[in-house]
Write a protein that binds this DNA or RNA. Sequence first.
DNA 1: CGTTGGATTGGCT
DNA 2: GCCAATCCAACGC
Length: 208
Amino acid sequence: MVSLDTRLPRTFYTRPSLEVARDLLGRIVVRPQPDGARLAGRIVETEAYRQDDPASHSFHGRTARTEVMFGPPGHLYVYFTYGMHFCMNVVTGEDGEGSAVLLRAVEPLEGLPEMSRRRRTADPRLICSGPGRLCQAFGVDRSLNGVDLVAGGELHIETGRPTPDAEVGVGPRVGIRVAVDQPWRFVVEHSPFLSRRALGIRPRRARG
DNA sequence: CGTTGGATTGGCT
DNA sequence: GCCAATCCAACGC
């Protein structure tokens, strides 16, 4: 009970984004509500980004937008895209490194009514199955950019249950136009809660 | 300062 | 499967 509800420590994030992306599968994203309730979901899809990666926002160096991404690990990097959507990332690696993991999909666990209301759909498979959908359901916008996930506040991630290799699929990242060959997307295989674009790509088994 | 296109989504063909 | 929506960061002049 206690271990399952423990927030992931700073050391969890102080590793290469590829490692963190794989290890985040099965963990629980928690967003405490003002009324004491919680929104929560199990991470089922992630993507790793790093500084030497042409598809990463950090590739062209430190800018106002990517400042948080270059900061200390264990913080939330939120950005706005396509004129209407937010995406949330977990900052990884050493301070100053410019690596992060994009949270692409979670399986809704707590606060379904609230998330359904925000998403305007009752289908649980459509609530958090995509980076933009996830942020809308969890009420994540630019005001949460830079939030410390370890301190415990607006948002944190709990230990949950790590996903065994047999259930992990890997494949190319989606929605990018460069470095499409890198298999840096990680999914919980056969989860009904994966993102729309991930469903089109059949992942292969991770490692052995 | 103008242009370009994006780590997406929902709706329509 | 295709495309518009709609803002803004990055880049070129």
